[in-house]
Design a protein around this nucleic acid. Structure first.
Lengths: 215, 215
DNA sequence: TTAAAATGTTAGATGAATCTAATAAAATAA
DNA sequence: TTATTTTATTAGATTCATCTAACATTTTAA
């Protein structure tokens, strides 16, 4: 395991990886809130440790070893979030920041015990899948709410960000994981949706519907 | 709050403080496993932050502010230990290292919730008192087992160190917080004690009896 | 009471993670 | 296709926590 900083780089690279797995230095710098040269030197260091592959002026990409490390951190983060909600009774909007700290705790016992107490859960409070000890991720097929056609009825299964402002908004709008909703109308001008949840109409902006996953 | 390193210095100074509150640089260096000049420069830094008072060639001493900080960290450590044992079902000998990490987690919510779930406990699994949010420590009068006269019957209420090798030994000897024992004989040569616990004789070396507190 | 030992201090170096300023390469637009 | 903009790199500085080596002070013991 690397330093706290290294762990954060690995995690950020993982979360920014799209189809190709390539991540740009600029995106990384923005995500980590550091300047470009900082990313540059750190990336070189991670390349020496075989966590990433990298060629000058090309993007950066996790190796298998790097991916495994990322998934181990994500596992700890998501277990911690679920534990904080289910066992400790905290709200889903307030657990992210605590989990950001707990994910760096080095103790297999601590996390295995959490896993046991939670009865080997498949997903965190935001619907995100929890990798197993070997870094395997339960597959999932999910669609953004923004992609669903008018008239359809769907179930909300996940959110794609777990930052407090977003979750606070969902709480206010009374949207939760597991809710079943019907798409009533899509406003062509701004892409906002009018949805129906147990008889009540709720208006959600496109920024919100892009971050809600349904099935 | 200071850096992780600063927190560790404060905590070590607190735990090394005896009657006078003065701590020598040499002791601090040994405890923190760093060299003397390192302690020297860190101590100067902590003095600027008014966490300690210090004059050249004299020992170092926590200010009221420093003591408060120390007690806040100790509160977190002890709550975490108790939580790991009571809620998460870990053994008292394995929780110290995890608590060393958890004590640096910055979240009042996390710790207040623990406190609540544990029903505002007074002591950790090793019998050490848990400071309250204001840094107040429940007073305690306790005697080392090594000081108790032959023939007396006493109750074990605390241990003075919570490192694994020591606790493993206690587990092997079947000594636990809350046990009632009778001092049968003190061996003059090495200070070891023969004690009686529910009919069984147990031999404890002086190194052990000095670290067991009774009432 | 002076010499030796223990303890504390200063100076200067190192590695980690960051920065700014200057420069180079690649991608995009005129 | 050349000029402009975006993206990445290099060089050199800074801060934190640490180190070693040399020196100073205080305590202890001969």
């Amino acid at each position: 395991m690397g330093s706290l900083t290294e762990e954060n780089y690995i995690k950020s690279i993982y979360s920014l990886s799209g189809e190709t797995g390539e991540v740009s230095f600029t995106d990384l710098a923005r995500k980590l809130e550091v300047k470009l040269p900082t990313v540059n030197s750190m990336v070189k260091k991670l390349a020496v440790k075989k966590m990433i592959v990298y060629a000058p002026y090309k993007g950066v990409k996790l190796t298998e070893k790097g991916k495994k490390e990322a998934l181990s951190i994500i596992r700890k983060h998501r277990l911690a979030e679920l534990f904080l909600v289910k066992v400790m009774g905290l709200g889903w909007e307030e657990v992210h920041d605590i989990a950001e700290q707990l994910e760096h705790v080095n103790s297999a016992r601590f996390y295995d015990r959490m896993d046991e107490l939670l009865n080997f859960p498949k997903a965190d409070p935001h619907g995100e899948p929890i990798p197993d000890t070997d870094g395997k991720l339960p597959a999932k097929k999910r669609i953004a709410l923004s992609e669903v056609a008018e008239g359809k009825t769907v179930k909300i299964i996940a959110v794609s960000v777990d930052e407090k402002p977003f979750l606070d908004l969902l709480n206010i709008k009374r949207i939760h994981i597991g809710d079943t909703i019907t798409i009533q109308k899509r406003e062509p001008f701004d892409g906002s949706l009018a949805i129906l949840k147990s008889g009540h109409e709720i208006i959600l902006s496109q920024q919100v519907t892009e971050r809600l996953f349904v099935e």
